[in-house]
Design a protein around this nucleic acid. Structure first.
Lengths: 184, 184
DNA sequence: ATTATCTATAGATCTATAGATAATGC
DNA sequence: ATTATCTATAGATCTATAGATAATGC
């Protein structure tokens, strides 16, 4: 086992990657520091040389998880309908561990430490701005942006929560169809 | 302290009421059985004479919490725009403990025991049906229903999670304005 | 000499159970 | 006699820390 500074950096990032996936899948309270370390191939004792506290990992993991929507966010600038179609999709619903942390953890965010909520707020604001720009010269562009963003987050979160897979698919397909109609 | 059967029923309901509020505020993992019992004026030892397990309380509390949106759900039948305006409101956002358990716990639901998810799914299906009926004789009524329901749940969940109160209000006001425009 | 990780553990939880206490209800 | 609630606790967590071990890096 390596102990160099370069190894430490790689170790640190491996811990955060495991956490970013598991927090989305099980919620912020759904996995322990010990289990995260074990899954990263480490033992619990080393954790606090990497993070001041569990909350510090929560914040780092959330920020890392946000990278998983950067592609979609970039696509919003040039092809908003395609970006939204990628977001409101069955494959996104079925891949919570690598999907958007906003739809996966919006309830957890409301109860999270301030530092995490601030990173969350900044990203939400940015996405809403991009969505509003996708309706250029329309008076109610910002209202539409608020509705579409709420639909994206809400439909994926709901589609994951309902037990009936048919209804789950209907939520995704219906919500997407209605949103795309707003671009006609 | 009373020990009659009538008292036991009242005690049982008091426990469920406390849980229904606290689960919405702090998440399903956010409060312990002991703290729930304490808040109901009891001690932890009596809990398992009322519930087979913690999960059983989760299911009962979620079903009780759903009663807090029955008024809104009834209003959907006769005055859908008013019902939606009540749901997508700052007062609903600021009262998570007595608000809709769907927007408060949609992420928790995705990770909840099957019995809870089934009660959840049934209610979601009913609300979507009512929303679809609010666009009579429109071909894409069900698509609109999926989008509007996702917007309602998503906007309230997002408005609670963002830290900036101005953005929080904008999400609510913008999403509501855009939804109401669909009824014009 | 410093430090990245490990083993071990303290101290604080949390769920669930056992057995005592004190009331109800036949 | 039954039972609703209480006190007490077992056993399994979980976060965080202390001190040992073994590698890096001056």
């Amino acid at each position: 086992m390596g102990h160099s500074q370069a190894d430490k950096l790689a170790t640190h990032q491996r811990i955060v990657q495991v956490a970013a996936r598991r927090f989305r899948e099980r919620g912020i309270d759904g996995i322990s520091v010990g289990d995260i370390m074990k899954e990263a191939g480490l033992t619990v004792g080393g954790f606090y040389k990497h993070f001041e506290s569990r909350d510090a990992l929560v914040t780092e993991a959330f920020i890392l998880a946000l990278q998983d929507i950067e592609q979609i966010q970039d696509a919003l600038k040039t092809a908003p309908q395609r970006a939204i179609s990628t977001y409101v999709s069955e494959s996104h619903r079925s891949n919570v561990g690598r999907g958007c942390p906003i739809s996966a953890m919006v309830n957890d965010m409301a109860r999270a430490p301030d530092a995490t909520r601030e990173a969350f707020t900044e990203r939400v604001g940015g996405i809403i701005d991009l969505l509003a720009e996708s309706f250029p010269e329309e008076e109610d562009a910002r209202d539409k942006a608020m509705m579409i963003f709420s639909t994206c987050v809400g439909s994926i979160a709901l589609a994951r929560a309902v037990k009936d897979p048919i209804l789950s698919n209907q939520i995704i397909e219906g919500a997407l169809a209605a949103v795309l109609k707003m671009y006609e």
